[in-house]
Design a protein around this nucleic acid. Structure first.
Lengths: 255, 255
DNA sequence: TCGATTTTGTGAACGCATTCACAAGTGGTT
DNA sequence: AACCACTTGTGAATGCGTTCACAAAATCGA
């Protein structure tokens, strides 16, 4: 690790040999390449686009045809300037003095997020949480379908959940090929997560959603997003503590 | 990249109004005296502290006494400078030339996150997902315990899950008082989320974890964190799409 | 005691994200 | 046509977070 600091973004290569892509404020590899038609939608915007899409879908159902940035921003819980900037990344689809056409915007955002085709998802780990995820409607509603359930426990293999038969994790390579799996969801215990992750990566899966409380090491080019329930609670706990005990000195309380 | 997810704690904002004063102690241009337990831990750091804590706990179990920032950073999937800066927010607990004492650091982080006492959590909505969360070990393991389960469906009230009897959501005010609930977890359908949220807030709960795919409006001073599975998948989908179609690829010479 | 080696803690640089503020369009009205 | 009320799109300003780079401890060996 002693390259000169000259370069642009130099990915901090983990000393261990695998670069770790945390799930935090993401960034997608950006080379010191000259910029071109910068279709690069910032990571932070992408997350919000998904929220806008959800709100817009509801509006569309209600028959709303047009919406202003102010209205949409309020409904999505963000600043309107922020929203306009987000949308500007995908081109100009609004009309000054009027607002945005709901249907057009829905279509545009779906296009950017790649929701026009339905990606196949494999869920590994059908324990408590995995079981719930398999039956969770939220997944299938938009752009995805759970195509396979797998588990390492022989006692669970064969069980039928949400219309799918649980297969052995040993079959993962076959499953991925047969069903053209694009996304792997890991809902195993923490100790098994890395192993499953490696297996997914070896089989060519480059998008992983991790529910196991473990840090996953993956090679460059693989995106990992993590959802850790305990950590969410701990963050709330931190703020809860601050509320109780007014910082430092004075009464300067939180907003 | 993540996420955190998802982002960070979005400070509550008035449903309509704007001007969410970010509550942050602003920049205390105070003298260079990091004295006392400076509460100004940045939001982004808090999320990582929770990760460090998890890793450190594992190290402690393995009997590891000391760890360097480089080792810990690698295990947590972050840059070592970033980690040192995070830790510096809670004072200097490392020893130059040596590293950090694992036990001391664990204790220190637990203190900052307020994990010394066990906060009581109420889970509202015992459907598919809620059911799984109730039985999920990850919650109870560290710093929390699910003290109550509630649901609006009379058919579910009375049912016993994970050693708890499901109570009616109508009893929420009583439950919160009786059990001293500090955190509310919403796992209801989207259409019921805001109503439940309002109820929680009215009863004095200021920390909410929302699993429902809905934007919650809450008054200032209330912290809401959201976990939206569909959005996580959509973000992955976005990147998946970019991989297929090399952004602004050589094809697009549009200029 | 001194120097070699290691590793922390942090000022400064950098880059990304959010917000501000306003010019430039748009539709409606007179 | 001229004006007005409204709303987008965006340069500039601001703020936050990450990374760099190095001086300041601390330990060890001779």
């Amino acid at each position: 690790m002693e390259e000169p600091a000259t370069g642009g973004v130099r990915r901090a290569r983990a000393a261990i040999g695998r670069a770790v892509r945390s799930t935090l404020p993401g960034r997608v590899e950006s080379r010191p390449e000259p910029r071109r038609e910068d279709r690069a939608v910032p990571e932070a915007s992408v997350a919000r686009l998904a929220v806008y899409l959800r709100v817009l879908s509801q509006l569309a159902e209600q028959g709303v045809v047009t919406v202003s940035s102010e209205e949409l921003a309020t409904a999505a819980g963000v600043n309107s300037a922020n929203l306009r900037k987000d949308l500007s990344h995908l081109g100009s689809y609004g009309t000054r003095g009027v607002g945005y056409d709901v249907a057009v915007l829905v279509e545009r955002i779906e296009g950017v997020l790649g929701l026009t085709r339905r990606l196949a998802v494999a869920l590994i780990g059908v324990g408590n949480l995995g079981h719930a995820l398999a039956g969770y409607g939220g997944f299938t509603t938009r752009g995805f379908h759970i195509a396979a359930l797998l588990d390492a426990d022989p006692a669970r293999v064969g069980e039928q959940i949400a219309g799918l038969v649980v297969r052995s994790v040993d079959e993962l390579p076959d499953v991925i090929r047969e069903l053209d799996i694009a996304i792997g969801v890991i809902a195993t215990p923490a100790h098994a997560a890395q192993e499953v992750c490696d297996l997914l990566v070896d089989c060519g899966v480059t998008s992983i959603l991790n529910f196991a409380p473990a840090v996953l090491a993956v090679p460059d080019g693989v995106d990992v997003r993590k959802v850790d329930l305990a950590i969410e609670l701990q963050i709330l706990s931190f703020h809860e503590q601050r509320k109780l005990r007014p910082v430092g000195g004075a009464l300067e309380e939180v907003g």
